[in-house]
Design a protein around this nucleic acid. Structure first.
Length: 301
DNA sequence: AAGACGAAAGTGGTTGA
DNA sequence: TCAACAACTTTCGTCTT
């Protein structure tokens, strides 16, 4: 995300979520467009959701827990005139204080969930994830709250991490890059939150199988199903030879798709494949070299 | 002229002391 | 907390089609 105007160097940028633009407040240059609205999702599909969501309030970025919204009963045991209160009253005040605090905690969890579920829904929609995935993600997020893993972390980054984990567990992996793009959270941050919750909740997330990326790549490159099958077959063989451990799964998948496209006479350039896979040509070449060597593939021109 | 190839240097993250 | 390390990227020169 840009923070200064490239035109005049001004640091004051205005976000216009209606138009989806970030505008320099000084010179009016549109610094970025098509930005994601990070505000909450207001749609409600049933009465339970409506109760949770329709409460209104400011968009996420302005919503800081307790910022000027909550009250607290102070610690000085005085009444409004400043004189000490009786022991009997004192006990009552202490009781009230205790419950007041508990109630605020409960409502802060509520509030947290409201924001988180909205964000979850938004990200899931942008990524085109199924209802099933959303449910699992929501469940996992609730576990995070229960285990108090959110404290000190941005809600959004935990949500993004949860989605990343669930996608992998359900074998429809999304890259950290994709999630970073739609969530507006840095990849680094999501990865950190992901590792953290994985460790704390002791959840088992399987290694990403590169062939899971193949259909996505072949589709964006408009390659036939034949190429897709070929690529997956190549990956099967590669896996048996232990060629994929420690490698980025997208790079391996990209190389397989590239090779398959050549073998099937539907050649795509390395650059084209690299672009849809989100890796560089060099990486494709490196994986391609390894695959070629180990599998004894000879490329007919 | 465009694409493929690979060497070399740089980057960001993980790991183990 | 720091250094070593592997994977990946960037950049660039050369070769091939």
């Amino acid at each position: 995300m840009v923070s200064t105007c490239p035109e005049c160097g001004n640091k004051k940028l205005t976000r216009d979520y209606e138009k989806g633009e970030i505008v320099c407040a000084n010179c009016g240059l549109i610094v970025e467009d098509n930005i994601a609205d990070q505000g909450p999702e207001w749609r409600a599909f049933d009465s339970e959701q409506r109760n949770k969501r329709a409460r209104g309030g400011a968009p996420i970025k302005y919503m800081r827990p307790d910022k000027g919204l909550s009250t607290e009963i102070d610690q000085y045991n005085r009444d409004a005139r400043g004189s000490k209160i009786s022991p009997k009253k004192l006990a009552q005040v202490q009781r009230i204080r205790k419950w007041h605090k508990r109630a605020s905690i409960a409502s802060s969890i509520e509030r947290n969930l409201t924001i988180a579920l909205g964000e979850l829904d938004r990200i899931a929609s942008s990524l085109g994830l199924s209802e099933n995935i959303r449910e699992s993600a929501a469940l996992l997020y609730r576990r995070c709250i229960r285990e108090e893993l959110i404290r000190g972390r941005l809600i959004e980054s935990v949500v993004a991490a949860v989605i990343y984990a669930v996608c992998r567990m359900q074998s429809i992996p999304r890259t950290l890059d994709e999630i970073a793009k739609v969530s507006g959270i840095e990849k680094k941050e999501i990865g950190r939150a992901y590792r953290f919750i994985k460790r704390e909740l002791q959840i088992d997330v399987p290694l990403t199988d590169p062939s899971q990326y193949v259909p996505k790549f072949t589709a964006s490159l408009k390659l036939s199903g034949q190429v897709q099958e070929k690529a997956i077959k190549l990956l099967r063989k590669a896996m048996k030879k232990g060629l994929i451990s420690g490698r980025g799964p997208t790079g391996v998948a990209a190389a397989a798709v590239y090779i398959a496209s050549v073998l099937c006479g539907e050649r795509r350039t390395q650059k084209e494949v690299a672009d849809v896979a989100g890796v560089t040509e060099v990486t494709i070449r490196n994986r391609y070299r390894e695959l070629k060597k180990e599998l004894g593939i000879n490329i007919p021109i």
